[in-house]
Design a protein around this nucleic acid. Structure first.
Lengths: 158, 158
DNA sequence: GCAAATTAATGATTTATTCAAG
DNA sequence: CTTGAATAAATCATTAATTTGC
């Protein structure tokens, strides 16, 4: 019994299904590199139809995919006999220079330096209204990054 | 009028008060390096008494403080004439080796390699129960990292 | 004394590395 | 060996110190 329920039943790490990977790669090829919270939320919901998944999985997937593609590029450009970069295939090749291509390839807002990614630590457990004082402005830039470390209690078996 | 309201009234970036810094440094000296969500939550609540603050500020503070202390150590050890490390002061000095001292200096669970920091993307907006299927185990390790990117909508003026 | 101009600190993000499950 | 997860290093961007010319 318990015929392989795919996903990660034991609760270890996410194991994407083919459908999920397909969609993610499609999005990636479409130019998505650093989806924002809203996008992640949507993607997660969508991918959730094909198996259990959390927002962080989507987030990490993009991070890793981006990083590894970059590293692959670097390796191949270094490893291939012809001099690093150059070779000019008459097409304007990207030649991403080791690092510096960030800045969102997102289809919209092409400029945008690198600005804010805020959090929303709020809504963690209860709404405990901190020392909610002169707070009016907080919505201007502040928005949901949510980064957060936690070790449940002590060691994790290992 | 409007005699300097300290904190960050305009809503740009967190500017810690002396009390806040004092507490943070105390905790740091006490050995805290990578507080978990619960701890951050508590610290935030505490520091909130002295001025507006969010969980991410606490998180970042520790990250930066740790990194900058490490970098300072490195600089001084390189700059100082006597050979790096050694000198053996008969006490077992820490000699943190450029990197590798992580692993929580937390008073408890001294072993613990570097394990998980989970998320809790859940509770972002509504509780939309994803594809909540065989999910029993998810509480074991999974817990509140909350990392999260977001650009509200489009460009942020700059 | 006081702002504009520079510099030093340091808060916030992103990228590179590392660890380890499968 | 691939790749999800997590941490550390590098970088960017603001704010506070400070210097400087008036």
């Amino acid at each position: 019994m318990c015929l392989h329920v795919k996903t990660h039943p034991g609760g270890t790490r996410w194991n994407p299904t083919q459908e999920q990977i397909g969609i993610l790669e499609m999005l990636y090829r479409g130019g998505m590199r650093t989806p924002n919270a809203q996008q992640i939320e949507q993607i997660t919901t969508q991918l959730g139809k094909y198996g259990k998944i959390e927002g962080k999985n989507v987030f990490y997937w993009f991070q890793n995919h981006k990083a590894r593609e970059r590293q692959k590029q670097k390796r191949s450009s270094l490893g291939l006999s012809h001099s690093p970069r150059s070779s000019s295939t008459s097409f304007s090749t990207i030649t991403l220079s080791t690092r510096g291509d960030n800045k969102q390839v997102q289809e919209s807002s092409p400029i945008l330096k690198r600005k804010c990614r805020a959090w929303s630590f709020e809504k963690l457990e209860e709404d405990k209204s901190y020392s909610r004082r002169e707070d009016e402005e907080s919505d201007k830039i502040n928005k949901t990054l949510e980064l957060f470390p936690l070790h449940p209690e002590g060691r994790i078996i290992n």
